[in-house]
Amino acid sequence: MKSVSAILLPIALVLLSACSGPKLEPLAVDAEIWAFGDSLTYGKGAPQGQDYPAVLAKLSHRRVINEGVSGETTTQGLERLTHLLEYDSPELLILMEGGNDFLRNHDTGLTKANLAQMIELAQSRAIPVVLVGVPEKGIFLSPAELYSELAETYGVIFIEDELTDLLKTPSMKSDTIHLNAAGYRALAEVIHRRLIEVEAL
C-alpha cells in the first residue's frame, strides 16, 4: 500500500507546475491596455460597445484601447504597431492577429516573423504581451502551431484554444469567421480570468 506522501507528491508536482508559468506585475488602476489585432479585435459582427476590448474594460476596471483594424494582415499590423509605439506605450499588449494572413494564404513563415517582431517591439519597451492563438483556415479549426512556438520562445502569456473553440460554436458566431456579441463577451471573460491567474488583476 502506498504511503500518503507517495500519493500526494505527484499531486503537489502538478500543482506546482500549474503555478510556475509566467506571471505579470499587477496593473495599476489607471493602467492602459492595448487590444491589438484585426476585425476580431475591432468587434465585427457585434453592436458597438460589445466588442471584446469594451467588455474587458468593464470586467477589469482598466482602460482597454481597441486597436483592432478590420482586414489587417500581420505585415500591416507590424507597421502600425511600430508607428503607434513611437508615440505612446501601454502597460499591457494583447496581441491577436494572423487570421487574414491565413485566409489569404500568406506564407506562415512571414506571419510568424511579423508576430515575433511585434512581440520584440513590445518587450524592448518592457511591455508585457498576452498572445491569443488564432486558428488556421481549414475544415477542422485548430490554432496555428506558430503561436505556441512564439509563446515558448518569448515567454509570453498564451491563450491557446479559447478563440478556436468559440469559432467552432455556431451560437457564438455572427458569420463564418467572426464572433457575435455573446462570443466577444466569452472571449473577454477568458482573457479577464487569465489576467487574474497571472496576477495582473
Rank of each mutant, 00 (worst) to 15 (best):
S89W: 06
Y42I: 05
P26Y: 06
L81P: 00
K2H: 12
L16Y: 08
A6Q: 15
A28W: 06
M1Y: 13
R193I: 08
A31H: 03
N180Q: 11
T164I: 05
T111S: 06
K58N: 11
L56V: 06
T153A: 14
S70W: 00
L78R: 09
L92C: 01
G49W: 10
R194C: 04
R185E: 14
V4L: 15
E197G: 10
G45P: 02
A144T: 10
D30I: 05
T153M: 12
T74I: 10
M118A: 07
F140K: 13
I7K: 05
E136V: 10
E136C: 04
K23T: 14
V64G: 01
L24V: 08
G37A: 09
L13D: 11
F36G: 00
I139R: 11
F36Y: 10
I33D: 05
M172T: 03
A46R: 03
S89H: 12
T75H: 06
P143D: 08
H106D: 07
G109I: 09
L81M: 02
A31P: 01
D38V: 08
V130G: 00
R185S: 11
L24P: 03
H61P: 00
S3E: 09
G21W: 12
E86L: 15
H61L: 10
D88Y: 04
P143Y: 05
K2R: 14
S39V: 11
E145M: 09
E120Y: 05
L187N: 00
G49L: 12
G45C: 03
A182Y: 01
L121I: 10
P135E: 06
G77N: 09
L121F: 12
K168A: 12
L15H: 12
A186R: 11
R63D: 12
A31C: 08
G49M: 12
G155F: 09
K2D: 13
L167C: 08
P26N: 09
E32S: 13
L8C: 13
D51Q: 07
G77F: 07
L95Q: 02
S5N: 13
I159K: 01
G155I: 09
I177L: 13
P10Y: 02
G98Y: 01
M96A: 15
S89T: 14
N114V: 01
P143N: 08
M96T: 04
A12S: 14
T176D: 14
L85S: 04
Y147H: 10
S70I: 03
L40Q: 09
H178S: 13
E120F: 03
A12D: 07
L40T: 10
S17N: 14
F102I: 10
M96G: 04
R193T: 12
Q117N: 14
A6G: 13
S20K: 12
P26H: 07
P22D: 10
A6P: 05
Y154S: 00
